[in-house]
């Protein structure tokens, strides 16, 4: 392949960081679309910072019930000691909202790593091998996909933790139950892409050249089948947060002494609402909405930029290199270039 590239007219590649999935789209976007993408990136960035530095940012521990002056007291309205008040269980709302970000992030990471790994592997196999294996996998995936994901997650949560759990037990339970629901999505998308790429000339060429199947699958097919993955990744992160919150709301979350979880806090605030106590529910709820909003904004923008029907006018290229950069993903596929 290197010989082929050298005979073509000189094409300067943009530096690697400009070819990263999200940054590349950021450069292509204009106007409102760019605004939405930037807003999403900012919100998600804040979420990541809060999640990582929760121990430094939170005024108290997530399971702390008493300060230097004794117990916090239950359902205290927002005030100087507790900026967002305290819950019915006597925890500090602000601290639990901040620590909740960490729990959410952990669940997202575990769920996505697991489901992406298993889903991509199954999708590759189904798409590449085809035949009966493919049909059976797809029927199973369809059955799971069509089913209400929350119900499946409940069943999975019962199996994994028996309902109540410690920090890691709870995180794993939530993550694995979400994984069960997500595998079909990765599988379908990767499989469809594999089917598309499989018939391309460069795969044929590699076969003729005698490359082993595993090499063709990973280097030629997989590397060229991953263009829709960033989109599913964002979709699944937001769905992971919603599923975790739903599980927590139904009482399958993580015990308050083990970690802070937004859904659990919302469940406990159910009776507060009737008596007009708003701070115990509004803040954890807003945290969920904001994080999902941020991640979804990124996903939506990526989707629009990838869909020619929805793409707004791209930013006109200022230089020849930029024009090439904008067409880069397509150009790479047509070339069958692997690296």
């Amino acid at each position: 392949m290197s010989a082929a590239v050298s005979t073509r007219p000189v094409r300067v590649r943009p530096p690697w960081w400009r070819r990263l999935p999200v940054l590349q789209q950021l450069q292509q976007s204009v106007g409102l679309q760019r605004g939405m993408l930037v807003a999403g990136l900012v919100i998600t960035g804040i979420f990541l910072v809060v999640a990582i530095f929760a121990p430094l940012l939170a005024p108290y521990r997530y399971n702390q019930l008493r300060g230097p002056e004794g117990l916090f007291g239950a359902q205290q309205p927002p005030g100087p000691d507790h900026l967002l008040g305290t819950t019915v269980g006597g925890y500090d709302v602000l601290s639990r909202v901040i620590w909740g970000a960490q729990t959410a992030l952990l669940v997202i990471i575990v769920a996505i790593v697991l489901s992406a790994f298993l889903g991509i592997a199954l999708g590759l196999l189904a798409g590449y091998i085809g035949g009966w294996f493919d049909r059976i996998t797809i029927v199973i995936a369809d059955a799971i996909y069509a089913f209400p994901s929350l119900l499946l997650a409940i069943v999975a949560a019962i199996v994994i933790s028996g309902g109540q759990s410690s920090l890691w037990g709870g995180i794993l339970a939530a993550a694995i139950s979400i994984t069960v629901v997500f595998i079909p999505q990765y599988l379908r998308v990767v499989r469809a892409e594999v089917l598309r790429v499989k018939s391309e000339a460069f795969v044929e060429a590699a076969k003729v050249a005698g490359a082993p199947t595993s090499r063709i699958m990973f280097r030629h097919v997989l590397r060229n089948s991953t263009r829709t993955l960033p989109l599913i990744l964002t979709l699944n992160s937001s769905e992971a947060i919603l599923t975790l919150a739903g599980l927590g709301f139904l009482g399958f979350g993580i015990e308050p002494s083990a970690a802070a979880e937004w859904g659990y806090d919302l469940n406990k605030s159910l009776s507060d609402v009737t008596s007009g106590i708003w701070w115990t529910s509004i803040f954890p709820g807003l945290a969920i909405v904001l994080v999902v909003l941020g991640i979804t904004l990124i996903g939506e923008s990526l989707n629009d930029l990838a869909d020619p029907r929805l793409r707004a006018r791209r930013k006109p290229a200022r230089t020849a290199e930029e024009a090439v950069a904008a067409e880069e993903p397509v150009a790479r596929e047509e070339l069958g270039e692997v690296l």
């Binding site: 409102l32 919603l242 919150a245 739903g246 009737t274 509004i282 969920i288 909003l293 707004a312």
Partner: peptide
Amino acid sequence: DRWGDASLRVFAILCYATPVFFAGLVLKL
């Protein structure tokens, strides 16, 4: 791609981003 569109799309994302039980709690409140 104008403001009406942008705000409606954000509304659509908000509909999706708000867990039904939180929407219910807020409406109730």
